[in-house]
Simulated assay, not measured.
Amino acid sequence: MSSTTSAYFDRAYRRPLTLWGDIRIPPEIAALVRRGAPNGVLDLGCGVGRFSRYVAQQGLRVTGVDFSPVAIAKARARVAADEVRPDFLVGDVTKLDALTGPFDLSFDVGCFHCLDATQQGLYVSEISRLLAPGGTHLIWALDAAPAGIPLDAAAVETTFAPRFELRDAKASRRRLLRSHWYWLVRSAE
Rank of each mutant, 00 (worst) to 15 (best):
T63F: 02
R78P: 02
I72Y: 05
G59I: 11
A81I: 09
K74R: 15
D92M: 02
T63V: 15
A75P: 02
R76S: 08
A56F: 10
V84D: 00
T63Y: 00
A80K: 13
S68Q: 05
G91Q: 01
G91A: 02
F88S: 01
R61N: 09
D92N: 14
D87R: 14
A73S: 14
R53Q: 15
R53P: 02
A71V: 10
A56P: 13
R76G: 00
A75H: 01
Q58I: 09
P69D: 14
R61W: 06
R53K: 13
V62K: 05
A81C: 10
I72C: 07
V79A: 06
V90E: 03
A56N: 08
Y54W: 14
V84G: 00
R85V: 03
Q57L: 14
P86L: 06
Y54D: 15
R76V: 07
S68C: 12
S68N: 10
D87S: 13
D82Q: 11
P69S: 12
Q57T: 04
A77W: 00
D66P: 03
V55W: 10
R61G: 10
G91M: 04
G64M: 11
P86H: 07
P86D: 08
G91T: 03
D66E: 09
V90G: 01
F67M: 14
S68E: 01
R61F: 04
Q57H: 15
A71P: 05
E83C: 09
L89C: 11
I72F: 05
L89H: 02
I72K: 00
A77N: 01
R53V: 03
R78E: 08
D92C: 03
S52P: 12
V90W: 02
V84I: 14
G91N: 03
V62R: 02
Y54G: 11
E83Y: 07
P69G: 14
D66G: 10
T63I: 15
V62D: 07
A71I: 13
V65M: 08
A80L: 13
G64V: 09
Q58Y: 08
A77M: 04
Q58F: 11
K74A: 13
A73Y: 05
A75R: 00
E83S: 13
P69F: 08
S68A: 09
V55D: 09
A75D: 10
G59Y: 09
R76D: 00
F67S: 12
R85W: 01
A80F: 07
F88W: 03
A71N: 08
V79D: 01
P86N: 06
I72P: 13
V84S: 06
V79F: 06
V79Q: 03
K74L: 15
R53D: 07
L60Y: 09
G91L: 03
